[in-house]
Structures are given as C-alpha cells and as structure tokens.
Amino acid sequence: MREGGRDDAPALEVDGLSFSYSGKPVLEEVGFRLEAGQFTVLLGPNGAGKTTLFSLITRLYDRRVGTIRVDGFELRRHAVAAHARMGVVFQQPTLDLDLSVRQNLTYHAALHGMGPREARRRAEEQVARVGLGDALKTRVRQLSGGQRRRVEIARGLLHRPRLLLLDEPTVGLDIAARRDLVERVHRLCVEEGVAVLWATHLIDEVYPEDRVVVLDGGKVRASGSVSEILAASGGTSIGEAFDTLTTGPVEVVS
C-alpha cells in the first residue's frame, strides 16, 4: 500500500527545489517540510515565487530540479498517490458559479473516484464543518466571497487529504471574512490533523504557534517557528522580522 511512503513521513517534504522560467531562476534550492497538524505560513512578498511553488507541488508544471514528497510519495514517480493526499485551494476562485454547492463538491468527489452516495455524504459533512450546512442547494453565484472560499476549503478537504494547500486564499475578502477564514483554517488544522501550507503576504495572518517559511526572490530566507524566526532575524515582531528578511541580501536560515 505505502510503496513510496514511510509511516513517519512528513505530510510535505520539499528538497533542493529549483525552477527557472525562460532562463530566469524563479525558485532556487527551496527546501522545507510540513508535519501533520502543523499550520505553516508561506510568507513572501508578491513575486517571491509562492504561486510557482504551488504549481510545482500540485504538478501543474513539472520542469524542475529537486524532490517533492507528499506523505512520503515522490510526486513524479507516485503522482496518483501524491495527488490523492493533497487538497488545494487555488488563488483564483475555481467553483462553477451556476452549479449548486453540492454539485460543485460531488464533481470534485468524482474527480477523486468517489461514488455518488459517498460523495453526497462527504459533501454534507464538510459543508457543515465550514458552517454552510444549509447552503448545499444554493447556487455558488448567490454566495458571498467569504462563503465561496469556505466552500473551496470544504472541497479541498473532501477526499481527506494529509496536506491542504492554500494559495493566498484571503485575496479579495473584506476584513471580517478574512479574519474568519484564517481562524477557521487554523481550527481545522488542529481538528483534522491535516498539514496546512498557507501562502500569504499579510503578516497578521500568522498566529504565534504557526510555523513560517519566509520566501523572497525565489529563496527560503528563513524557516521555523515564529520564535525561531524572530531569533534568527533579531526582530521583535514577525512584521519586523519579515522586513529584515525580505529586504536586502540578508540570508538567515535557522
């Protein structure tokens, strides 16, 4: 069953990952790992390479150097197993607006090989978990931006992945919806024991107990717990640390 994985394998392991786009390096020697139940913030300014990194982890493109393992399964060699273990919330909204919440979710369930009955059951379960239990039959078009994002999170968790990837999920949300989403996903991470990789450039989305990977100019500038990042950068707040780490040529890796 676990031909490529090990029982103690981290949910995500990225090692020596480099990628260039028309000759220009976008990612250089990126490496970090995520354990189950850990909320990791991938923090970086716009253009740091966050979306590229996500596209590589989700295997939308593949011309790269280095290894990516999901739950111990190398992405290239065991694409099926690796994909089955990850849930993704993309930066752009990807729901079918004219279909109902349930139809959107059962479509996704089918893409993971689930039968109709199981799909409906899981859709109900996950939608209730993100607090939209009574919106199953609602057309997505009628939902607010924050609610749509929650549907996408329910979708990402539908096939019970070990790893949930979210690429700047709060873009375009108002302050209240943003705070709600950050709070919810933190809670889900603990409750479900799923490893979360949350990309953002907004410092206030980092909780004190989170782990942080600071990405800038395609390189990992620092990674570790919030206190480790603070120690490495000499800053007193994560905002200050972020400024120190992402401006200038400082390279601190804890």
Binding site: M1, E3, H78, V80, A81, A84, D96, D98, L99, Q103, T106, Y107, H108, A109, A110, L111, H112, G113, M114, G115, P116
Partner: peptide
C-alpha cells in the same frame, strides 16, 4: 496505490455530468 475500474467510471461520470449541467444552465 491502485485505482480501481469503478473509480475511473466515477471520475468519468463526474466530468460528463458537470458538462451536461453547465450546458443545461447555458440555454
């Protein structure tokens, strides 16, 4: 990990029914 035949069919049914639903909505 092996992916059984039934799962392939579920996947196909899902993709086809999404397309048909979208088509119905786009009169």
């Amino acid at each position: 990990m092996s992916v059984g035949m039934g799962r392939y069919l579920h996947c196909m049914r899902g993709v086809v029914s999404r397309e048909l639903l979208r088509f119905v909505h786009q009169r």
